[in-house]
Structures are given as structure tokens and as C-alpha cells.
């Protein structure tokens, strides 16, 4: 990074660290923080979408759809996320490629499963093997997003399902009395009101999601815990210009501070959001706000 970094052995402590902390690997480490934040930013709304669909399915009148919704929630919630991540991404990837294979290569006569190999035609590969590395990484990232969203969507579905049930029955009856249809009641009365009941559960889910990010490496993403381990491990002078002992402790300490700070910021933001959502609601919190204003 800096011009004096060419011969790190001769540098003083401060300069040594300024070089050490700006090496290419450390840059990857810093980029990993952005990756984690980006993943969270994308996963949260997608998981919420999955959760919303799941909750709607679970309270559907059409029985098979209801069973599907309830089974999805029960199964995914019952399995530790780590066990899920260990086989699900590969399965998901194969499922995508299988579908593309069926569409793109109808004339293919060889079996797709050859022994333990999973072979699809070249055109069905995702991404194509000629694609540049960044596309492979983006695809891996998207797979991770989908996997996270499916897992956390099940939890979100459970929370939203509870939130929908918590909206006072009288509110819905009033809507019906005004002549609203089922659909209108759902979208105009139930959905706007359920958030305040669901928010505590959803904020908790967000906190759990933050803390699940170290599992990203299982999904093939080089996340911050992976780099902290990699960088903190003992380095001998044969393979690096910056040899050092077992420094994992310091890297993990840094991660600890990062996670604590992130949690604190999230807590503050979610508290504000709760205040906002409570406004004008038929809950004790909303009542308290109304009285305070009056």
C-alpha cells in the first residue's frame, strides 16, 4: 500500500502495522464486512417476503396450501440452521441446473446422475463455466441469500402468523360491517395493523440473523469470521512478509466489538420504528402516545 512497505522487516512498529493492515488479504477482510452488510440488507426484505407468503399460506382456506404453509414453518424451524446450510445450497444449485437442463438441452441422452457425479449440459451450467469469476461469486452470493431467506422466512412466517392472529377480532368485524370484502379486509385492515404486533418478534429475528452471518462460510461466502481465522492464524516467514504468532484473539475481539456495535445500532433503530408503528394503534402503547400528545 505505502511506498515504504517493500521491506517490512526493517520497519518500526507503527509503520509495520500500517503496512500489515493494508495488505491485499486485509482488504479482502474489509470487503467481507461490506459483503455481510449487503447480504443482511438483501436477505431481510426477501426473508420477510417469504415469511409473508408462508403466513398467508398457513392461514389459507384452501387446505393443501395451508398444509404446505404449516409444514414449511414446522420443518424449517425444527432444523438447526447449520445442518440446513450444510447440504441445502448444493441441493438448491443442483435443482436450478436440473431445471435449466430440462429446458435448454432436451436432446441430451446421457444420464444426469453418473455415479456420484451430477452432470448437466454445458449450456445449463449456472453460471456458465466461461463466465468470469465475479459472476460465480455473485451467483454464490445469491444462493446464500435464497438459503438464508428460506430459513429465516420460516421464522418470519411464524411471527407474522402470530401477528395476524393478534389483530383484535373486532377490527375485522367492523370492516366486514362496512361492507368490505375478504380481500379488502385483509389488505386494508389486517396487514397495516399486524406489524405492530409482529415487530418485537421481527426485531428479534433480525438480531438472530445478524448473529447467523458467521455461518456464511458454509455457503461458500468468505465472510468476516473466515478471514479473521485465516488472518489471525500463525504465519511463518516462508509464506508471508508479515510473520506473526497466533493472533486470532485480537481479530475475534475486533469482530466482537463489530457485532456488539451493530446490535446496539439495530436496537436503537428498531426502538424508533416501534414508536412510529405504535402511533394511532389500538394498543396500550398507542393509547399512551395519544394521551401524552393530548
Amino acid at each position: 500500500m505505502f511506498s515504504y512497505c517493500s521491506d517490512p522487516d526493517t520497519l518500526g512498529t507503527f509503520r509495520w502495522f500500517s503496512c500489515y493492515l493494508t495488505t491485499g488479504v486485509h482488504m479482502s477482510f474489509y470487503v467481507a464486512f461490506l459483503k455481510v452488510l449487503l447480504l443482511l440488507a438483501i436477505t431481510a426484505p426477501v426473508a420477510l417476503g417469504f415469511g409473508f407468503l408462508g403466513a398467508m399460506a398457513a392461514r389459507a382456506r384452501f387446505a393443501p396450501l395451508r398444509w404446505f404453509g404449516k409444514t414449511y414453518i414446522a420443518i424449517v424451524r425444527g432444523v438447526p440452521d447449520i445442518a440446513f446450510f450444510l447440504f441445502f445450497v448444493i441441493a438448491l444449485d443442483q435443482a436450478f441446473e436440473y431445471m435449466r437442463h430440462k429446458v435448454l438441452c432436451p436432446d441430451w441422452d446421457q444420464p444426469i446422475r453418473q455415479g456420484s457425479d451430477f452432470v448437466v449440459c454445458t449450456a445449463a451450467k449456472l453460471p456458465l463455466s466461461t463466465a468470469p469469476q465475479w459472476m460465480h461469486e455473485t451467483y454464490g452470493f445469491l444462493l446464500a441469500v435464497v438459503t438464508f431467506a428460506i430459513v429465516f422466512g420460516a421464522f418470519a412466517a411464524n411471527v407474522l402468523f402470530g401477528g395476524m392472529r393478534a389483530v383484535p377480532r373486532a377490527q375485522l368485524e367492523t370492516a366486514e360491517a362496512y361492507g368490505m370484502s375478504q380481500r379488502q379486509t385483509f389488505w386494508r385492515i389486517l396487514v397495516p395493523q399486524m406489524w405492530v404486533y409482529a415487530l418485537p418478534g421481527l426485531s428479534n429475528l433480525w438480531m438472530v440473523l445478524i448473529k447467523a452471518t458467521p455461518l456464511l462460510f458454509l455457503l461458500g461466502i468468505e465472510d468476516i469470521v473466515y478471514w479473521a481465522r485465516e488472518l489471525g492464524g500463525t504465519k511463518t516467514s516462508r509464506f508471508t512478509d508479515y510473520p506473526h504468532g497466533d493472533w486470532r484473539m485480537w481479530y475475534f475481539l475486533f469482530l466482537l466489538i463489530f457485532y456488539l456495535a451493530f446490535t446496539r445500532v439495530s436496537e436503537i433503530v428498531l426502538e424508533r420504528l416501534m414508536q412510529k408503528l405504535t402511533h394511532g394503534q389500538a394498543t396500550s402503547g398507542g393509547e399512551a402516545q395519544r394521551r401524552a400528545a393530548a
Binding site: M207, K211, A212, T213, P214, V225, R248, F252, L255, L256, Y259, L260, T263, R264
Partner: peptide, 15 residues
């Protein structure tokens, strides 16, 4: 409560 809820279990085990 803040420290144990705010950090991944992973890191808690390590320390």
C-alpha cells in the same frame, strides 16, 4: 445481557 445477546455464539465459544 447485552454482551451475550449481542455477539455470535461462535465468538463466545472461542473466547
Amino acid at each position: 445481557i447485552f454482551v451475550f445477546r449481542g455477539s455470535p455464539l461462535f465468538i463466545q465459544f472461542f473466547f
